[in-house]
Amino acid sequence: MKNTVNILLLLLLVFAQVSIVSANVVCTRNKDCPGDTGWELGVAIGVGGMTNPLVGGDNIPLVIIPDIAYYGDNLYFDNAEFGWRTSITARHEINLFVTPNKEKAFFSFWHTSNILGPIFTLDSPFQSGDEMNIGNPIIGQSTVSIDDVSSRKWAADAGVRWRWKWKNSVINSSVYADVSDVYKGTHGSLSFTSKWAFDDWTVYTSPNVHWYSDNLTDYYYGIRTLPLLGKGLGYEGKSGLQFGMRVLALHSIDDSWHVLIRASAVKLHSGMRNSPLVDSSTVLSGFVGMAYQF
């Protein structure tokens, strides 16, 4: 029922945006016009962060945000996504790409003790940041490997994206699959991104929905080794849909300098929320800073 309400709200937002987008687009050649090719390089410095939904996880600081993109006729690189794109028609485009999966980021700012601490007593305490190679700590009188809980690996995804471009808006539909043999699963997303221009401001809004497979959810948020300690302590992550919203605003001071404001919110799906590793149902992110574009 809740999912249905969420979907209806998303569709309402999508249609509301479709109905009021501007018909005209003005831009500057070799700078921000559709069809321009070449490099876009920038760096933003400011204050911000992303909340970490893991139990006791450290929030992820955002101080420096680079923006690195290259677009050729077909090949492109855009902030860690390397791909090839082609137009099917003037309005439809297909992308094939590889990109890192970002789910591991939360675990890089998380310490295994945060979840194991309340449950077990470790004979040999470990320091913050050492979660990758804890070894075989003694829990009571039993030796248990907690590698499966403590170390989540980075993964690489290959994907295909269909883009439908309409006036100032783009619908992106993407499917990703693990090609690094790490989580052995898939995920997919659907987003509706609109670009708005007001005087010196450019604002992007992007409501989105993301589906995660059983395998992905279970690899990052499941607990497989704890059943050694008894039934009921493990957790198997299940697939699910989650909804999010991203807003990005750029205020131009001159050709190179901009004020950058970024915010996003994601409601984690139940397969993640119900994991013992997770104690927050949302991930919030915000950043305010100065951006310089070369």
Binding site: D78, N79, S169, V170
Partner: peptide
């Protein structure tokens, strides 16, 4: 059409 880049900047 709108949007040269495939991802949000």
């Amino acid at each position: 059409d709108f949007s040269q880049r495939t991802r949000l900047p």
